[in-house]
Structures are given as structure tokens and as C-alpha cells.
Design a protein around this nucleic acid. Structure first.
Lengths: 186, 186
DNA sequence: AGATCCATGTAACAGGTTACATGATTTA
DNA sequence: TAAATCATGTAACCTGTTACATGGATCT
């Protein structure tokens, strides 16, 4: 149950229309919680129905007409409640790891190419995060707590991408010495 | 679409009943692809219907009776096809990161305790992985490719848990110098 | 008037979660 | 024989994905 809270966070940072939210979920927020416009519109409807957000009264609402939302006090309270609530860490569920394990059983042809492709993608993402860090968080003493929190989240992204690049590099090295023999399993 | 392939991999490693699979999804395979018994039984039914697996002919199948499954040639082919197929890297979707970002907006009370709790959980998981590595992959030259692949997957688990522990430690350090001021945002 | 965006939706489906139901086997 | 445990399932619901539909504004 995180999408509604992701939307509340985004709307508190800045009141927005559905399409603007969708764009923001392709960038900053989307770096750790992605969502499509269909999900977002569905959830905006629910949040409004639950009295956690409302549309800014501007023009008459109609199908093709822009609607801007803002968070109501009840929405802010719900977000604070959720953020403080104890939750279990997310269990890992990664198809790439599963595919490596499958390759150990059925023999992986073309697997190394796929690992190289992922390595390039993760390198590119890491470069993007590094640029954001240089731009938004230059070295400075005594930052306000909000900025520290945002920086900590960005650091998670940077360190995660660093993990992937070093791990993939190591995996390719390790496999370089072992020729593929497809279908050796019983 | 990974659960069926996780099950095919597990069944190729060792033919099993639904409950045995469930137990294995709480350990080894579950470390990177978790699933409940309800999901597993539903998927076993589909895989059998699609002719990718079959029940070992032993006793008459009935409601409370154990059924053991094995993979058919078509299932092995499907798994090999899927494992070789190019796929996009999994996008990050982590509630903890979202909660930190929310805390930057609504002020996080009790957040540090939650970070400490997660740190302990990740430390414990890391210790477990380290023990498995010592037991199953002691230093040795020239391992077969299958073993290398399995070791690479375990390394991913180890390095991921290492990332979480170092990142959480750093986050707690960083926050130690910034007192909480709930509700400072507009 | 038609093409092209901008913007908000609908519908159908697949996958994951939670709660509950039921039969078979072992053990106190 | 009752309880506990092993084992397989059903049902309802929620989230996420994919494909498609529709209205409004702008530009040529």
C-alpha cells in the first residue's frame, strides 16, 4: 500500500495535475517508486473519495480538462502515520538473479551479452545520479533535516547502482574463465 | 512473468510437491524470489495444464494427498528460452526510501528507530549468507560453470545486504546531527 | 477542416496478498 | 478418538500492466 503515499508525498512537495504527477513519476519519485498514468488517475480518484486530497477549485471539471490536486489535512496525517509505522524490509525479487540460477540448470546461451547490457544501463543510471548529487547537494556543513533526508535517499540510489555495476563486472570476470556447456544438467 | 520460471528452475533442481516447493521458497530460492503456497499451487495447476510439468504417477490424486511434480521437455525449453531473452532491469520500488522522502515533507518521528530495526535485520541476513558461502563455496580453483553461477547469485545477496547495512549506518550518522522538527514544511 | 498535442479516463487481465476451507496422516 | 500436523486447495481483493477511448486546445 505505497502508491497512495507516494502520491501524497509528491502532492505535498507541489500540487499537481495527473499528467504532471505522471511526469514526476518518470523522474525523481520514479527513481524509487514508479507508476503509470493509469495507476495514478485511479489512485487520485480514490484519494479524493477518501477525503485525503481535493481538486483546486478553478474551472468546471470535465473529461479533457486539467484538474489540479492538493493534499488535505487528513491526507498529511495519514502520510505521517504511514511513514512512522513499522514495516518489514522489502524482500528481494529480481528476475536477473532468477535467470542466472535458471542458467545454472539449463545452460545459459547469450547470458554474458545480457549481463553486459545491464552493466551499461546501470552505469548510465549511476552517472545520472552522480550528476544530480553534484547539482543539488554540493558539499556544505549543517544542512536542514529535510535536505539531509533527500540526500540520503539519493545516496541509496547511487550506492545501489554502484552495487550493480561492481557485481556485474565481477560476474562477467568470473564467467570469463568458464566456457558454456549448455544442457549439462541431467 | 517470473513465478512459473522460478518454479520450473526449482523443479529441475529437484522434483517436489507443492508444500516442499513452498518450503524451498522460504529459503534458497526465496532469497531472490518469494512466493506463498497459494501462488505456488495456482501456478502448478497452470504449468500442468500447459504441458510444461506433470505429476509423478504414484498414488491416486485427491485433495489432501501429496502430489509430486517433475519438469517435461517442453518446460525445460521454455525456461531456457526465457532465461536467454533480453529483459529490462527491475526498476527500484522500495517503501523505505519512499518513507524517508515522505519524512522530509511531514517530519519523521520515530524514523531513526525504524532505520535501526532494519539495520539489525539486514545484518542478520548478511550473517546467514556469509555462513552459506563458507559452507557451500570454500575457496577452490576451477569450479564448474553451474557452481560459479550459483556462487555469483549468492554474491549478489551478500553484496546487497552489505549495501543496506553500510547505507543505513551512514544514514543514521547523518541524521544524528539533525534534530527532528516535525511539521516544518508549509 | 484536419493533424497534433495535452489531458483524463475505461476495460480487461495478470500477479500478489490475505483469509479461510478441507482432506489425509500421525501421535498423544 | 481427539488433536495436531501435513498437504492441497478456494475465494476475494488489491496492485500493476497493457491496450484502447475520448475530450479539449492549438497550429497549419
Amino acid at each position: 500500500m505505497s502508491l497512495p503515499h507516494a502520491i501524497l508525498t509528491a502532492l505535498l512537495e507541489k500540487p499537481s495535475s495527473g499528467l504532471e504527477l505522471t511526469r514526476r513519476f518518470d523522474r525523481s519519485i520514479g527513481y524509487f517508486w514508479s507508476a503509470t498514468h493509469q495507476q495514478i488517475y485511479r489512485e487520485l480518484g480514490r484519494l479524493e473519495g477518501d477525503g485525503l486530497i481535493r481538486t483546486l477549485p478553478s474551472e468546471k471539471p470535465a473529461r479533457g480538462r486539467r484538474k489540479e490536486y492538493e493534499v488535505l489535512p487528513a491526507g498529511r496525517e495519514e502520510l505521517a502515520r504511514w511513514a512512522a509505522e513499522p514495516q518489514a524490509p522489502r524482500t528481494v525479487r529480481d528476475p536477473l538473479l532468477l535467470r542466472l540460477r535458471a542458467a545454472a540448470v539449463v545452460g545459459g546461451v547469450g547470458l554474458e551479452d545480457e549481463l553486459r547490457r545491464h552493466l551499461e544501463l546501470h552505469r548510465a543510471q549511476l552517472a545520472e545520479y552522480d550528476a544530480i548529487e553534484r547539482r543539488d547537494f554540493p558539499p556544505a556543513p549543517d544542512r536542514p533535516r529535510e535536505d539531509r533526508l533527500r540526500h540520503i535517499v539519493l545516496r541509496a540510489g547511487i550506492e545501489l547502482e554502484t552495487f550493480w555495476t561492481t557485481w556485474l563486472t565481477g560476474a562477467l570476470d568470473e564467467l570469463a574463465g568458464a566456457p558454456d556447456q549448455a544442457g549439462t544438467a541431467p
